[in-house]
Every structure is written in C-alpha cells, then in structure tokens.
Write a protein that binds this DNA or RNA. Sequence first.
RNA 1: GGGCGUGUAGCUCAGAGGUAGAGCAGCGGACUUUUAAUCCGUUGGCCGAAGGUUCGAUCCCUUCCACGCUCACCA
Length: 503
Amino acid sequence: MNIFIDGGTAMLRDHNEIIRNRYAKADALRAERINPYVNRWLPTHSSQQIRACQEQLAADKTRVRFAGRIVGMRHMGKASFIHLKDEKGRLQAYLKKDILPEADYKVFKEYSDLGDIAGVEGEVFVTRTGELTIQALSYTLLSKSVRPLPEKWHGLRDVETRFRQRYVDLIVNDGVRETFVLRSRLVSSMRNYLAGRGYLEVETPMMHTVCGGATARPFKTHHNALNMDLFLRIAPELYLKRLMVGGIEKIFEINRNFRNEGISTKHNPEFTMLELYTAYWDYRDTMALTEYMIRHIARESFGRTEFEFGDIRFDLGPAFPRVTYLDAIRRWVPGAADADLRWDDPPETTLEKMRPFHTPEFRGPSYQMIIDLFEHRVEPQLIFPVYITEFPKAVSPLAKSKPDEPLVAERFELFICGMEIANGYSELNDPREQYECFRQQVEAKARGDDEAHDMDEDYIRALEYGMPPASGLGVGIDRVTMILTNSPSIRDVILFPLMKPEW
RNA sequence: GGGCGUGUAGCUCAGAGGUAGAGCAGCGGACUUUUAAUCCGUUGGCCGAAGGUUCGAUCCCUUCCACGCUCACCA
C-alpha cells in the first residue's frame, strides 16, 4: 500500500521520499485515532530477563510484555518475524494474522517500519530453528520512526556521522554502548575507591576570573550582567588547594576541563579529569595511590589487569617502575647511555652533550632542549606503565622542589601506551615562592607566552594562611578509558566530541 | 595552522572527459516457523559547494566547506 497523505510537515532540509512517506503513516494512524507516540507502555521483562528465564516462561505460558526498536523484519505472507532490540539485546517476535487482533495486525502490517519502537505481549516459545521468540497476542506501535536506519549488515561506518549522530551509532553499532558502559563503570569504581578511603568529592567553579592550574590557552566567555570576561577553567587545581587550606585533607573532583588547543586523537577541547589532593603526603605517596587505584578499577570494571591497545599489550598488575626524567633519556635514547645532562648547564654545554644523539628542534634554555629530546625520543617508547619522576622545576610552577635540588620538582607523570595518563606532585605551599613563580609566569606572558599563568593574588593569600604539606594528582579519564577499552581515538570514548557545525 | 587523503541514492560502496551504477533499505506483488529469508517487478541522485578549462565536467584545474590520518601545540 502506497501511502501519500499530504499532511506530514517537512521540517528538515534533508527530508526525502522515505521520510515523507513515514510521516504520512503517522498521520494516517492519527486519522484512525491511534497515537503514533504513546505516553506509557510498561514492559514486564527485558530481553535479558526473558532469555534468562525462558524455560520457566515457556512452561508456564506466562504472558510477557516486551518493547524495543524493530531492527529486523521478515514477512512471510500472513505472518511475520521481527527482531526487537532493547538496551540489553535483541529478541524475536512472531506475528500471525489469525492470532493478533485485526487492528493490531493492520498497525503492524501497514504502518510499521524498520526502526519503529514497538511493544508486544505474548507467550515465549522456541521456533523450530531454535530461536527464542515471543508469540505475539498483541502488538502496539509505541513510537513512529520516520528516518531510515543505516543498512543492516554494513551498519554505520562513516566516522563523521557516527560522531555527529551518536544516537544512530548507538542504535546500529553494538560495542559503542559497551564502551560507554565501561567508562561509566570505571568512573564509578574510581569514586567508590576514593570515597572508601575518606576522600571528599567536591565541585569547584568551571568559570574562572583568573586562569590557572595548568599551562594552556583558555576559552574566553563573558558575563553580561556583570560585564566581565570569564575563562572556562583549564584545571580545578587552585580551587582544590584553597580547600586544603580550609582544612579538608582528602579531596577530589571528577569533571570537565577546557583547553583552547589543537584537536587530535588524544585531545578534545573539553575533557574529563580526576584531580585529587591528600594532605601530609608527598609525590611518592600519590604515586602509590595512583597505581593501586588504577589497578583496582581495572580489576573491578574489567576483571583483569592485562589489556590490549592496538597491537600493544600491557599489564597493570606488576608494580609500575619509577624512572627519573634524566635516567629515562639515558635508558631509552640510543647513544645517550652515558650522557650527563644537567638542568643547570648553560645551553651550549647541553647542546654539546646532546650532539652525539640528538639535535633539538630549537635553541633555548637547557631544560627546554632536554624536554624536547624527551618528548620526541622517549615518550613514544613508554608503552608499559612507567612513572617518570624528577621533572624540571622550571616547567612545574605549582610543584615543590626537592629539598636538596631546587631545580628539580617532586613531580611524576604516569605513561601507558606512549600517552601521559596521570601527572602529580608535591604541592608548592610556600606563599612567597609561589608568588615568585607566578611573577615569572606573568613576565613570560608579557613576553608573549600565552599559555603562562596569570597572577592569582587570592590564591597567594590563601597560601599565606598556611596549606598543609600535600600532594596532588590529575588523571585523564578519557585516556584511561581509551587504553582500557582499546579505543584508538579520544572521540571513541566521548559521547559527543566537538565537531564543526554541519550546516 | 602545515602535509596527505576522503566526500557519488537513506546506508555500504563501484565507476568514468560523452550526461549515473550495484547491494541493502524503500515501494508494488507472492509466501502462516523465518534468520543477511526467498522470488517477481520497481521508485530514489544539483556525484560536498562555487568558479574555471572544454563542444561537453560528476571525472581535469582553482578556491572554499566538512571529515579522517599525521605534524605542530597540548593532557
């Protein structure tokens, strides 16, 4: 039957014949006083429950009510098989003309399409080919779908459409939902782990008047009533440490940060961080916590510690080795085994020492050339879990120096699969030293470094009241999810990654 | 931002300087236990956008847009 009722209102620019036709079906249903978008229809069982109790349900001839999206349809003359998919799986229903009420059969046969949400009530049986099926005694169209789904066995491959229309991706591509279920599970696991150890979860401002806590360009916004520029936060760090001043000794926040930087398979402008602070600890204690926590969430969420990421295999079970920054260079850069690099060497000396194995891409202070070397030659090799420690103080303005080495910060980063997964340090709490660091940052900014910190006078004032010795941690939740779910791009673990407008 | 690549029907993809193809979906028909059901018939396209070259461009050239990979920046 070819329905062309000119009542459907085309609303979007891409409406085609299929869509117009389906809108016409919805109108035709309305004309017969059947609501194509019903208000309420409660299933008695999920597909999972029916599957689990199938023998019992079949033996008792229990009437089950089951609802889902029609993802498969096979008409056999006056009978049809359809597959209904709910959140937990898909289940077949068998619709026979001489069993269904006439009206129900008409709604199914004339007005239902692949993609519609429908409910059936009936008895459970097994077909002669062995498939668990509901013999439908009634059929209800619950929500009319007017837009055709992607093709049934190639599915939706186009990555752009998958990200822009994640709802379709979730409908069609099994495994996408699984990734986000796992993400949710591991975040819950993390929360429970920390709550169980006495950490208080807090929420600090996303809109900052002073931008700080990390080195990154911010997004700028504006408050109209106050006529004031604001920044989306690049890190919650300085607020969390204010709370440490306030006497909260164990604290964490899991939430979004925003950085106005490039986009890549490892970078989304908004991303989720765990930040955590513990009073009276130093960075070694935080390293231990980080390791236990990551191992714990892996076991609790996945039941294992061994994972694959692309063609990399790694194990979170064994202790994570700790290697200092300069040792890592000696260890992983060919020809650098005997290099005696020092943060305080003059640039010419560092250049001379590096000549046998590396030519920096630029000339600058020794620490910058060493960092350049590390990031290009060492980082890609850090695929198994490893802590890199003893970073240069010059790039750690919020970290505390080692007692006997003022140029070296008590700081670590955790690398897995060549990615920086976590970053932590002993927190600088000397207000004068912090002020001096900020002052240098402000100078750098004045010289054109647009990622340098601003002066945060209130933060200095807070430190003047006294912050206990403490250590903090930041963990990139998206990246942890990537490596644990074997997702090659950060966009695979963010439901709605940022895209330029389509239209 | 640079480099490389992609963009053709709702989806997955072919194609070629001469005016557009397949499979699935859709539509019409047959079929009361199918499984990518099958069988017969059939409708869909501003070939990403705009210019240019040409008798003729979806194809060649230029610019633009979107997306992917990659480098840079960064977590």
